[in-house]
């Protein structure tokens, strides 16, 4: 269990430092596999239900979803870099900082129990890395990856806290996460078609600021107004 927790933390650090999107997807797929075998080694025994959960988890998180994201990446063409707002070195440094923060939080939370669970630390660390990735990466695809890591973190934390719900609830949670990322995958294809890019920092059509005023400075008011009207007409 401790080994897996360490591996999980390492995969997330690696994710923060990797510049190639395909590598990042592979890392998350590997992470999904680790998460899948976590219930098998966490001492719940090998009941049929645990096996089914593990198998479903592995199939969804380390095979199906990464495959879909790879397809989306292939389709999006040339730009395969992660494109962060924060440099990779700084990302890794922040990652290490986040690891310390997770350790501190867990030691605070479990001070009454007197045990510091390494997998709980890993859970928190994954959660923070996921959030960090969503915030600091430009591409929509990286945001989907970040969400997957975040979910992995929540799942790991839940498992290490030993808060087991019944089989059906666990399965339902897995299914929800799967459908969520599946939807994100479908939308990635559409984002690619609509915008010719999958960068979220160019998501600026919706805002409380009025765009035409800004464009006035650039001197192409007419074009933009027409464009807006056309779009509204399409609705």
């Amino acid at each position: 269990m401790n080994n897996i927790a360490t591996l999980l933390a390492l995969t997330s650090l690696f994710l923060l430092g990797s510049s190639r999107l395909s590598l990042a997807i592979n890392m998350v797929a590997f992470q999904g596999f680790l998460i899948g075998i976590l219930p098998l080694v966490s001492g719940h025994g090998f009941t049929l239900e645990v096996l089914i959960l593990a198998a479903t988890g592995i199939i969804m998180k380390s095979i199906a979803l990464p495959h879909m994201l790879r397809k989306a990446l292939e389709k999006s063409g040339t730009k395969r870099e992660v494109e962060p707002y924060i440099s990779f070195g700084a990302s890794i440094l922040s990652g290490i900082l986040l690891l310390f923060v997770s350790g501190w939080i867990v030691s605070r939370l479990t001070q009454d129990e007197g045990i510091v669970s390494s997998s709980l630390i890993a859970g928190f660390f994954l959660l923070f890395t996921g959030l960090f990735t969503i915030i600091t990466r430009k591409k929509a695809l990286t945001q989907a990856l970040g969400f997957l890591v975040l979910e992995n973190g929540v799942y790991t934390a839940g498992l290490s806290l030993g808060s087991e719900f019944s089989f059906m609830v666990e399965l339902g949670i897995l299914l929800d996460v799967f459908v969520g990322i599946f939807l994100m995958g479908i939308m990635l294809f559409h984002i690619d078609n609509e915008f010719d890019h999958i960068d979220t920092d160019r998501f600026d059509a919706l805002s409380d600021l009025e765009l035409p005023d800004l464009e006035l400075l650039n001197g192409n008011v007419l074009n933009l107004d027409q464009e807006l009207d056309e779009e509204e007409g399409a609705e």
Binding site: M184, M187, H190, F203, E231
Partner: peptide, 14 residues
């Protein structure tokens, strides 16, 4: 199915 609704839906989902 236009840019704006796609942006809104993506933000919502994430």
């Amino acid at each position: 199915r236009n840019k704006k609704s796609l942006e809104a839906a993506w933000k919502y989902l994430i």
